[in-house]
């Protein structure tokens, strides 16, 4: 046994000339290299942070009229208008779209907002309070979106009240996310949440009425 051991050891590579010899032998010098290296790496991270971080690769702009599909729906965004609501007398954004749900249960139009992320441009002002109307009965809210029933819809969002100069907006931009069905934090029932994957960016200029 001892003889075998020595034989094997004799044929093992000699590390003295290996990669380890690239580093200086002296302890203080090694410490200095580690310190400088850490400082450089830290500085680089700080610089990236100060410049706003690394942005995820953005998918290119998708043309209006192109179907976009995730697990929740297929939507084709056609055109946008900024018009006065005849009943409320307030401005609202109206977007004409084809929508087909891929869920097995109906969902409320409000659930679309987190997935579609509508923003007024320029300025990226978030639009909230989503409503939907069917082209077949434009005077009555659509109620819920039914599974696998292609429908021509008009999605509407009120102009945010704090916007004093709505005329400056030129259009509405959508960042359409992937969607997944999961339970909420406090609410056990399942609903749709965005994944962190952007599926498409669609920008609609306001049509001149």
């Amino acid at each position: 046994m001892p003889l075998d051991f020595f034989l094997v050891a004799h044929h093992a590579p000699d590390f003295d000339d290996g990669p380890g010899s690239l580093l200086p032998r002296s302890g203080p010098l090694r410490a200095a290299i580690v310190l400088v290296g850490t400082a450089v790496a830290g500085g680089a991270i700080l610089l990236i942070w100060a410049l706003g971080g690394l942005a995820p690769a953005k998918p290119p702009l998708t043309d209006p009229g192109t179907p976009v599909t995730n697990d929740m729906f297929t939507i084709t965004l056609h055109e946008a208008e900024l018009v006065e609501n005849e009943i409320l007398g307030t401005l609202e954004v109206r977007v004409r779209a084809d929508l087909t749900s891929h869920h097995t249960e109906p969902f409320w139009p409000a659930e679309l907002r987190l997935i579609l992320n509508p923003k007024l441009t320029p300025g990226d002002v978030e639009l909230k309070a989503t409503s939907a109307f069917l082209e077949r009965r434009p005077d009555t809210p659509a109620g819920m979106i039914q599974p696998e029933m292609p429908e021509e819809v008009v999605l509407t969002w009120p102009m945010p009240e704090e916007e004093t100069d709505p005329e400056k907006f030129e259009g509405v931009a959508f960042t359409i996310m992937g969607a997944e069905l999961k339970s909420g934090f406090t609410d056990q029932s399942e609903s749709w949440f965005p994944t962190d994957k952007v599926i498409a960016n669609v920008s609609l200029p306001f049509e001149k009425g």
Binding site: P106, P141, G143, E148
Partner: peptide, 9 residues
Amino acid sequence: GYTYSMSKL
């Protein structure tokens, strides 16, 4: 396995 809600039409 599919559920539909009442039509509002």
